Simulated scan of single mutants.
Amino acid sequence: MADQIITNAQDKMKKAEDALTRELGTIRAGRANASILNRVMVDYYGAATPLNQVASITIPEARILMVTPYDKSALEDIEKGIMESDVGITPANDGTAIRLVIPQLTEERRKEIAKNVKAKAEEGKVAVRNVRRDAMDSIKKGHKNGDYTDDDLHNLEEQVQKVTDKAIKGVDAIAAAKEKEIMTD
């Protein structure tokens, strides 16, 4: 029972880290990164379809994303989907593919994005702390029911805190890596 509480907490904290990684992957860092198009949906034959299911996304140069549709008739729908998304890049349609040129980031914009990364990291830490709180509540409930002795309670609380500290360090590392990517050219 106690091991299950710790394991569940670890799993949920890992999921919070993974969610942060996915979230930060969609933030533009001045370099071409196909994951910035993950949320783009295309109206493909009347159904909202993720862009990566109707086109291949390649990076021919450091600051260029090339979107090549599998079905050439979907080119205009793909262009429209990119325009309507929150990517913030105007697509250039050459008749067979769409080019997205990632603009050079200004220092001011880099700082703004880094601030956004810190905010997302803080959300990740809050998620980890919420998991910690739930685990602590379960442990205390078990202690109250007589499942754990006072020593067991203390040991389990220490284990949960160690798992939490490790997850918080992981969140910080993920955010620091993204900030470094944004601040370097």
Rank of each mutant, 00 (worst) to 15 (best):
M1K: 15
M1C: 12
D3G: 12
D3P: 08
Q4C: 11
N8A: 09
D11N: 13
K12F: 05
K12G: 03
K12Q: 13
M13T: 05
M13Y: 09
K14C: 08
A16C: 07
E17N: 09
E17K: 08
D18L: 07
A19H: 13
L20T: 04
T26I: 03
R28W: 02
A29S: 10
G30F: 11
I36N: 00
I36A: 00
N38R: 02
V40L: 01
Y45M: 04
A47W: 00
P50D: 02
L51E: 00
N52M: 06
V54S: 03
V54Y: 01
S56L: 05
I57W: 01
T58I: 01
P60N: 09
E61D: 14
A62E: 07
M66C: 10
Y70V: 00
D71S: 01
K72N: 12
L75F: 03
L75N: 04
E76R: 15
E76D: 14
D77Y: 02
K80V: 07
G81A: 05
I82E: 06
M83Y: 13
E84G: 12
G88A: 07
T90E: 13
T90F: 11
A92C: 08
G95H: 04
G95W: 00
T96V: 14
A97T: 12
R99Q: 09
V101M: 11
P103R: 05
L105R: 06
L105A: 02
T106H: 07
E107F: 04
E112L: 04
E112Q: 11
I113Q: 00
K120M: 13
A121Q: 11
E123W: 15
K125C: 13
A127K: 03
N130F: 13
R132D: 08
R133S: 06
S138T: 12
I139W: 12
K140M: 01
K140N: 00
K140P: 01
H143L: 11
K144M: 12
Y148I: 00
Y148G: 01
H154Y: 12
V160H: 09
V163R: 05
T164K: 01
T164S: 05
D165M: 15
A167T: 06
G170T: 02
G170L: 07
D172W: 03
A175K: 00
A175C: 04
A176I: 14
A177Y: 10
A177D: 15
K178T: 02
K178R: 04
I182K: 00
I182Q: 05
M183A: 09
D185N: 10
